[in-house]
Design a protein around this nucleic acid. Structure first.
Lengths: 162, 162
DNA sequence: CCTTGTAATGATATCCATTATCATTATAAA
DNA sequence: TTTATAATGATAATGGATATCATTACAAGG
């Protein structure tokens, strides 16, 4: 049976921004939903190419921008010169932040202290709105440091700027 | 009297990484100390060029990487495709985070809730160290949203992806 | 003061992620 | 089916950042 997928329910979340729900869009969103990693455009391309060799890199970039603008995915800058993407669940079920190793670039998700953090964030958002008229839509928290491997290894990074 | 500056005291903080403290290094660090903004390499180039037309862009990039690696300045990615830099005071006196407008790209510093935030961060760092063997060296917190102008204006951004 | 090894610089070329262009294809509604 | 046009993909172009390498200039030892 050839590829024959149901349209993902999330598709409705971008209904007003989009006219046609296509195979590339379905495949890219699908991949991001399934993976735990933070993928770059090229990684997505590499992952989907075997399944759909006709999909070009341009489409990946365009689709990622569409999904990001629509709030379905999040664009992350970890400082290695390329943007990464992760799926953003509507229900905050996977609310987490990042732990980035400055040496090897590894990214860990962390999920502890959600409640306290959310209290703090909410409070901050209130103040910011009052003080600067800023409407908060999202926040990022990231910790930079050395992962276990790089701490013990003590080796130098080959990544420039790290 | 020609330019004749005292070497900035911070110079000692990178003593072991550096052999010579030069005019470009002094000027770049000096500029970052004085400004409240978050400058790109090109903005720094533009600002210093009138004073020192011989300074090339390459030196700016190299010096910024040196200062960043040494922990004197912080590299920030706001998502507009170019890295920005800010001076990082040793005494945490200016501890702050960023408020980024997704439409116009404006960046505000915010400094409220430092104590609670630091408590939370410290606690988190402890857990992360225990759980993942991660040694935290820095953290970033940023809020993304719409600034007052862009809220009321309701105009669309020309910045791709925003 | 000179000399000298070499760190630092700057012009240039290059790299690489991302965007723009535009002809072609394929979707969804009539 | 037909059709208007949204979406795609090959290609070229853009632009921030880095590599290369000959040149300059700093700092230590004479």
């Amino acid at each position: 049976m050839p590829k024959k997928k149901e349209v993902h329910p999330e598709r409705t979340r971008i209904g007003d921004r989009i006219a046609r729900w296509t195979i590339p869009r379905e495949d890219i969103l699908d991949l991001l939903i399934r993976t735990q990693q933070h993928l770059t455009a090229k990684e997505i391309y590499a992952a989907l190419n075997p399944l759909n060799p006709d999909m070009g890199l341009t489409t990946i970039y365009r689709t990622l921008e569409l999904l990001d603008t629509s709030g379905l995915i999040r664009k992350i800058y970890t400082g290695d010169g390329q943007a990464r993407f992760e799926y953003k669940r509507a229900d905050h079920a996977d609310h987490h932040h990042h732990l980035i190793c400055s040496v090897c670039g590894k990214i860990l998700n962390y999920r502890d202290f959600e409640k306290e953090e959310l209290d703090l964030v909410r409070k901050t958002e209130e103040i910011l709105a009052r003080k600067h008229g800023f409407l908060i839509r999202d926040h990022n928290i990231e910790f930079l440091g050395l992962c276990g491997d790089c701490r013990s290894g003590g080796k130098r990074s080959t990544i420039p700027g790290r």
